[in-house]
Amino acid sequence: MKKYFVEYKPFLVFLASFFGCYILLTFVYQFFLSGFGSSTVDTITQVVAKNSEKVISWFFMRVQSESVVSEPFVRMYFQNQYIVRIVEGCNGISVIILFISFIVAFSGSLKNTLLFIFGGTVLIYILNVLRIAVLIVLMYYFPEKTHLLHGVLFPVIIYGIVFILWVIWVNKFSKYAK
Rank of each mutant, 00 (worst) to 15 (best):
H150M: 02
T121R: 07
V13F: 04
N112Q: 15
Y29L: 09
V152L: 15
S57F: 01
L114C: 12
Q64V: 14
R85S: 14
V13T: 15
L153Q: 00
F36S: 04
R131D: 01
K111Q: 12
V137S: 10
L130W: 02
K175A: 15
F106D: 05
Q46P: 06
H147Y: 08
M1T: 08
V162K: 02
T43Q: 04
L138Y: 03
S17C: 15
V13D: 08
R62A: 13
G37D: 09
I136W: 00
V74M: 11
S57K: 12
G151C: 01
T43N: 14
Y176T: 11
V95Y: 01
I83H: 05
K172P: 01
F142V: 05
V68P: 00
P10N: 09
S107K: 13
E66N: 13
W169S: 00
V167Y: 02
F11R: 12
Y125M: 02
M76C: 08
S65G: 15
Y125S: 06
V41K: 05
V156M: 13
F173M: 08
P10S: 10
G20R: 01
N80W: 07
F59H: 10
K2H: 12
N51P: 00
S67K: 10
F5K: 05
I100H: 03
I56K: 00
F173Y: 15
T113S: 09
I126F: 03
F173L: 14
E88V: 14
Q64T: 09
K175W: 05
